[in-house]
Design a protein around this nucleic acid. Structure first.
Lengths: 248, 248
DNA sequence: CCAATTTTTATCCACTTGGATAGCTATTTT
DNA sequence: AAAATAGCTATCCAAGTGGATAAAAATTGG
């Protein structure tokens, strides 16, 4: 594996660099309102878009289950019902496919986790409790999210750096001030918000990520409605212990 | 990958079955005090034992970082400074090597996490707090443990079933009654102990497992003494909120 | 010291890997 | 309808995969 891995990494670097540059250029152009480079204006067809999406969905599932290196582009292609050559056609490289899948993953997460209109004028405590429960529900409904990111985080590499900068850090920057607020009100424990966030996400995600283990070890079905409900209560109780007293 | 994976899985099954049988036979013999089969009495040399250990150590590191499928026996062998053929000689199969590494991992964990003599006559609360802090410290000192098991738990397979039955379930059976005790005393929140255990281990492990992400996203070094200390406090505060009041 | 045995290396194998390429098919524009 | 283009398949490649095997090297009991 050594040599191919090196090649793969090297190519990953190359791809990443060129891709990042392309994207950064694109971002810059968006910022400065300039039209992109003459734009070869490729007319994408619905058919192509559909298969591209099918590949992305399968890629997300497989990458999250087995990790980047253990998944073959052929596995993904087969699951999507296409020839593996199509992955090169639609995404260029396996690395690129991964990034596209992650981009879509976080996009969907942001939509699902955003505060709905009817919760906008709740008190901070109530809103946070709802958000906490919504997050637990998301972890249960989409265990592939935690699985994917956690696997990448076990080993430091370019993909992690990219995802962290692009998605994780921004989302945390959004959450942390609100926790700070809760601490001030005495609803959340007075603990460094960053450590608190890792404890919370770790607690909320893990049970659903490793549902197979929970099944083997205790016979519980972590993804059942009953357990999800109970576990939401667990997380709220643990991380907003002042909630009850605040309500009273 | 498809075909080779099937072959690999099939062989894994065979190996596992035969191995499990062997082991079960061995266990049975140990139970019934019968000497094992005439014992071909192979005289192992120190040299062989040493390289075997070197391979095991490297295997643990690499499996935990990248997951079983993504690691090549050649990677492990190279890191251990030997030819990859030696892995077949010492362990038979890659699957077997994994199991041997996990066996040793849990053996070491049990040693490190056991209650030291000087803590034996502490109160349940104090003993539990010590145990909690000891666990957090272990997670920080040996992040490979959580990484390895979590990766296997993402996907259901024979290795997970084996590890769960052999190591995880027994250890949980040991811990759960003690938590039940704490709940009775009002020191720990009145929550299903199993869910509580997953919340606790998830919270305690994750930060250290994904230290690379924490570094990228917040610039914190999760494995620094300072953070380990702080995080121990976080875990104790979260999971033994009644500790203070119990002390007063 | 030397014969027996354990440990290690050097190759071999069939199969898989990510990616490249050429050409075929389907769709769209003119 | 036909030219143009997008989507897709089939096939090739060099390199890597886990495992098998035989012969070399190191160790040890006698």
């Amino acid at each position: 594996m050594a040599v191919q891995r090196i090649i793969s990494v090297a190519q990953g670097h190359i791809c990443r660099v060129s891709m990042t540059i392309d994207r950064d250029i694109a971002d810059d152009q968006r910022r400065s309102q300039l039209p992109a480079t003459p734009a070869p204006k490729k007319r994408v067809q619905d058919r192509g878009l559909a298969t591209k999406q099918r590949i992305l969905d399968e890629a997300l599932q497989q990458f999250s289950r087995s990790g980047f290196d253990a998944v073959g582009v052929r596995d993904i292609a087969e699951a999507a019902g296409v020839q593996h050559g199509l992955i090169k056609y639609h995404f260029g490289t396996k690395d690129n496919l991964w990034r596209e899948a992650v981009r879509q993953l976080f996009q969907r997460a942001t939509q699902i986790l955003q505060v709905p209109p009817e919760e906008e004028n709740l008190s901070t405590e109530e809103a946070t409790e709802k958000a906490l429960r919504r997050y637990v529900r998301y972890c249960a409904d989409h265990p592939e999210h935690a699985r994917l990111m956690v696997q990448e985080s076990f080993r430091d590499n370019e993909r992690l750096e990219w995802a962290s900068r692009k998605f994780i850090r921004p989302s945390h920057d959004d959450i942390l001030p609100r926790w700070q607020d809760l601490i001030g009100k005495g609803v959340a424990p007075n603990i460094d918000p960053v450590l608190m966030l890792y404890a919370m996400t770790g607690a909320a995600q893990t049970l659903f990520s490793i549902a197979a283990e929970a099944k083997h070890s205790h016979g519980i079905d972590a993804l059942s409605e009953e357990v999800i409900q109970q576990y939401s209560d667990v997380i709220v109780t643990l991380f907003m212990p002042g909630l009850m007293s605040a309500h009273i």
